[in-house]
Amino acid sequence: NAVDLGAVLEQFSLVFCRLKFIFGPMALHALDLVDLRSVLHITSPCGRSTYQVTGSSGKTYTCYKSCHYCSCPAFIFSVLRKNDSMLCKHILAVYLSQAMGACQELSVSDQQMCDILLAKDG
């Protein structure tokens, strides 16, 4: 009903403001990726798992599960070199997709997982 929708929108607006306050314009770019269902959660039979995010350019980047690492150029430049950001939009999109249950799921073989973890840009 209208009252509930208003409350939800208000809540969303508050969360978005907080995200934007912490992450700046990156928050919007990350939410775009979530909207496009760009985050792929990949698992293999042995239990190893990782994430692949399709960026706005169409390239796919690998984000590891246990620590902040993304194979995209922005992570290398802004996070590692300039140290002016905690993470890139792809890692933020992984966090947001996890929280919103918006990850796509993919099962691969243990052997295929090796190639994905090597994180050669696709």
Binding site: R48, T50, Y64, H68, Y69, I76, L80, R81, L117
Partner: peptide, 19 residues
């Protein structure tokens, strides 16, 4: 080599140990 190489090896070490 640059920080990307250092980060990639470190992150993969941590990810493997975590798994």
């Amino acid at each position: 080599s640059g920080p990307a190489e250092g980060a990639h090896i470190s992150a993969l070490l941590l990810d493997a140990a975590s798994h």
